[in-house]
Design a protein around this nucleic acid. Structure first.
Lengths: 340, 340
DNA sequence: CGCCTTTTTGACAACGATTGCAGTCAATTT
DNA sequence: AAATTGACTGCAATCGTTGTCAAAAAGGCG
């Protein structure tokens, strides 16, 4: 690997001059600079970021921990973060907690030892205490995405979950549904709480008495969504929901499977609306009505926020940004059958 | 940030001893070791990997460049790589070339300056020359995934594309199709070439004269697949294919849209089979017949191979591994209509 | 008790890049 | 012609960690 000393020798100057020629061009004489640049180019010199980071005490690295890279929402989030990071000359270390607090803790440690300048994280159940334990975290800014851990003073980029959920359920109510089931995520996760809250608000607004048997936990995962949907749809006929509102697309995929396995039809027998727009939601038959989240924008904006925090040295107080969701009405929601 | 000197002071020993106590425990006296470990724990010491990497001349970092992180195939690939890397104590820098050679070149440069010990890459059209330009690459082992760039001596983990494609097309032929169209990817990409070759072999094997008008380029992308499908399905009735074989899932999604926009039904009017199994392929109606690739295994295996190359210093000659595909017959393929 | 091994520890020099400081040299001013 | 300025360059220290080497301490043996 070519180092600065090699370029220095080739250009017949000192290493200091090479460094300056490359990073502070106006501090060296034009002809020297040209000689250095040429030598560097010819030798294919690439600065060693490890050494530079060590000396300058800055890594130009950001850490990103998402909870499920295989879910389109998170993949899109990650892309938004990376695009923004690249724009500002940062690299991103991407990890996947799989919603497992232990994995998250491990990755946080591993990450910390690489001296990232900032951290973006989709928190899990224990993120709050993990962040507290990160003693070295000094003033390292942290931005939470999609959910919050409740850590005081932390920044976050979220969506209007309550409103988004309420709109979805109000849409069902407007179609005439009265018995509306919800498949929610882990109750410790704020998105699950907020979406449940939106669901309840909508019911309340319409004067519908909430029935706790119509709310089932799908643990944010496909299998959980499958089980939850089965549970709800196997209620006795007069108690069974005529519509389901699902907290995310993973669980919705499970719910669709369950509905099919029960031999029910969407939307004739059961209306379905879920959070997250995905390719399969668009391609399935009937296309799924969804609450679309601006995943790319969340990631991009979070990273922009982080970078601007890094620019201004003063550790700004935690600010929470909330983006809007959009209800995309497709064919999976319809009037309930009479007497349903 | 706590450094070794801080721990040394707290434990009343020299920095060297702290370093040894942490990395070569049997070289320090038990009581000293205990004192050091305790101090380190108490202060929350984390070794600085930048400094360590610089000193030890090894970063424990791997680079991974995929061509589209939003595609499930690539996301799964990445997960396989990361899981394997983690097992061996490596971190992964993940990038996304978006199939754009310029992006790839930029990321390769950026990556190189972080001194990764090895590189995993899903090559684009210009990877071969990019790798050649990477002068510093010395003996840095490179593993190609999914496709090959044709760089001599490089390792690769691929699938049996010819065979997989042939089986898919033979399945269509067995159903009675004679006019079978193919939507292929960029011809410079080896997977596209090989899958096309499999298609041709299947036709030849069945004594069907290939018709070049039945092959359209979808450029690996959804929009391309849409356009290509339109082109093929708008051929005059007696020339129009009764079945389509699509080179990947992105293009297949476009093809499905095109088929629907034309008011055609799957599989009654047109049979469809594509490479890559995805959630939407399973959930769409009718469920899509696909050639499933072991994406996770490709990633995992590639990373395992890379790590084992790193272990044995000798730069082994390039070896190409090919994994099997599986034809999953679902409902999107059926007998052609009589007189179709 | 002294000599020789073995264990344990600390001082020091790297790794590669950057930067404050000081020195050189030519250009300008007096 | 001497003095002053300014532009440019090199020296040396530094970032945090590790490995080499030698010194110091501890243990073993006659």
């Amino acid at each position: 690997m070519i180092k600065i000393a090699d370029v220095a020798r080739a250009a017949q100057v000192s290493p200091s001059t090479v460094s300056r020629a490359l990073t502070k061009p106006d501090l060296v004489a034009p002809e020297t600079r040209e000689r250095v640049l040429q030598a560097a180019r010819q030798l294919g010199y690439q600065p060693n970021k490890l050494a530079r980071g060590l000396r300058k005490q800055q890594s130009r690295l950001l850490g990103l921990i998402v909870s499920d890279i295989l879910a389109p929402f998170h993949a899109t989030l990650a892309k938004g973060v990376q695009d923004a990071a690249e724009k500002h000359g940062y690299m991103v270390f991407l990890f996947n907690s799989d919603e497992q607090p232990e994995k998250e803790a491990r990755y946080l440690q591993e990450l910390q030892s690489h001296w990232p300048e900032g951290l973006l994280i989709v928190p899990t159940a224990k993120t709050r205490q993990h962040l507290r334990n990160l003693r070295g975290a000094r003033g390292m800014p942290v931005i939470e995405l999609d959910r919050t851990s409740g850590t005081p003073g932390v920044h976050a980029v979220l969506v209007e979950n309550v409103l988004g959920a309420r709109e979805a359920v109000e849409h069902l109510i407007a179609l005439g549904h009265r018995r509306i089931g919800m498949i929610t995520g882990e109750p410790v996760i704020t998105t699950a709480q907020e979406r449940l809250e939106g669901y309840r608000q909508a019911l309340k607004g319409a004067g519908i008495t909430p029935d706790e048997r119509l709310v089932a936990n799908g643990y944010h995962k496909e299998e959980g969504g499958y089980a939850a949907a089965l549970q709800l749809l196997r209620l006795p006929p007069q108690e069974r929901p005529t519509a389901l509102f699902v907290g995310n697309s993973e669980m919705a995929a499970g719910a669709v499977q369950a509905i099919r396995d029960l031999g029910l039809r969407i939307p004739e027998d059961i209306s379905l609306v879920s959070f997250d727009d995905t390719r399969w939601a668009q391609l399935m038959e009937p296309a799924l009505t969804v609450v679309a989240q601006p995943a790319y924008e969340i990631g991009y904006l979070a990273c922009e926020t982080l970078v601007s925090l890094l620019r201004q040295k003063a550790p700004a107080e935690g600010r929470i940004l909330r983006l809007k969701t959009r209800l995309l009405i497709r064919q999976s929601t319809a009037r309930p059958r009479l007497g349903g």
